[in-house]
Structures are given as C-alpha cells and as structure tokens.
C-alpha cells in the first residue's frame, strides 16, 4: 500500500504486471528467435500459413484467444493432464503461469515479426562467407546474425514487453482477476473505475502513462545511440 495525495493505492498489480511482462519477454525472445529464424529462411509456400498463424493475435479479439486458451489449458484438459504425468502440480489457468502463457500467445507477433524482418535483411552471402571461414551454425548465428539484428531484438523486446503490460482481455479470461494473484494493473484500473474510485484510477493510470513513456524513450534513445548501420 502506498499513500499518494491522501489516497491509498495498492501497488501489487503493478509489480505483478511488470513481473509477468518481464517473464513473457524473456520467454518470447527464447522461443521467438528460433521461430523467426525458421520462418525467415523458409522457402516453401507453407510460410504463408505460418505467418498468418503468428499474426492472428493482431486481429483476433483478445477474448477469443483467451477463450480458446482457457479451453486448452483447463485443469482437466489434455495439456494439464499431460504435464501432471510428469509430476506437475497446480494449474495452468487462473495463476501466474496462466498469465504468462496467455501473454506469450498474445504478444507473439510483436516479438516474431521484427526478428523475422531483421533476419531476412541479413544477406545470405555473409553467412556463406562465415561458413567458408569455418564458423559453425551457432557460431555464425551469434557472431554475424545477432550483432546485425540488434535493432530487431531491441524492437522485439520492447514491443513484447510494452504490449504485455497493456493487455486486458486475455489476462482477464485466462488469469481471472484474483486480487493479489492474477490481478494485473489494467484490470485493477478497470475495477477502480467500475466502483467509482477515480482517485486510485487516476494515480495508477498516470503511473502507467509515465512508465510507458519512459520505457519507450529509453529504447528509442538507445536505438539512436547504438544503432548499427548495415550496408
């Protein structure tokens, strides 16, 4: 609890939001990088299908995505049963895990698309040259691809993080708005407004606004300063 301008504000939703967004960003970079690489190098026409699938969360109402995730990950569903077989306890929905899973799906295009475009922009000849200089695949990836895709990684991480912070529908469906456990800041603000607690809503909203603005400015500043020129 924090006292601000004579109003007490519960900061737990903010911390939860930042935590979920941070975990989601890390997961997305780990999963999104190989996926984006695979898509960038794909020559077959199946690429269209994959691109459409990855882009789905951009156009789908978050509630639709949340609904399906709820069905797939429900406590008696096949995915949870499968995990239980390996000793998993607890459940995938209405928990922090559920929030992260939902966010990963929802923010997937924001991580994969910038990475894919960054990878596509790297001339194949550079990788070929590196192989003739005896660099293995992973060696080429970390010494040629990663440094030349810095901007792509920066954009992917920022957008994934910011988009997760700002989501509402999916976390409401999959997380369930349990105070102290799955109540994220966007839902918290909605609740305050619903119960006419405008002071709390004001403070939280202003904090989110300033935070988001600062993050974006930091990123664009870094991008400008360390931006790599390719060509």
């Amino acid at each position: 609890m924090l006292e601000l301008f004579g109003t007490s504000v519960n900061l737990a939703p903010i911390w939860l939001t930042l935590e979920v967004a941070a975990i989601t960003t890390v997961v997305l970079l780990l999963l999104g990088t190989p996926l984006a690489w695979w898509m960038a190098k794909m020559r077959s026409s199946n690429k269209v299908v994959l691109e459409a699938l990855v882009a789905l969360p951009l156009v789908l109402p978050p509630t639709v995505l949340g609904f399906y995730l709820l069905i797939i990950f429900n406590p008696t569903g096949p995915v949870t049963e499968f995990l239980r077989f390996f000793g998993f306890e607890g459940q995938l929905t209405f928990s922090k895990t559920g929030l992260v899973i939902g966010s990963v799906f929802y923010s997937l295009p924001f991580a994969v698309q910038p990475l894919m475009h960054a990878f596509e922009a790297i001339p194949q000849r550079l990788l070929d040259a590196a192989s003739t200089l005896r660099a293995s695949f992973l060696d080429r990836f970390f010494t040629i691809v990663v440094p030349l895709s810095q901007r792509g990684f920066l954009v992917a991480a920022t957008l994934a993080f910011a988009h997760t912070v700002g989501e509402f529908g999916v976390v409401l469906m999959v997380g369930g708005n349990i105070p102290g456990q799955t109540r994220m800041v966007s839902i918290d603000i909605f609740d305050h407004v619903e119960s006419l607690e405008y002071d709390q809503a004001h403070i939280l909203s202003a904090m989110m606004l300033i935070f988001s603005l600062c993050v974006l400015m930091l990123v664009y500043g870094l991008n400008r300063r360390f931006g790599v020129k390719v060509g």
Binding site: R125, L126, D128, S131, T132, R134, P147, K229
Partner: peptide
C-alpha cells in the same frame, strides 16, 4: 566449414559490423 575452401564473393561479403 570442413571443406577448407576459400571463397571470394561478387560483392566481397565483408562483415559490415
């Protein structure tokens, strides 16, 4: 990498970074 062939490409393919 195991063929030990040197390759000079049309546009040199130097690493820009």
């Amino acid at each position: 990498p195991q063929r030990h062939i040197g390759f000079v490409f049309q546009d040199a393919a130097l690493f820009p970074h």
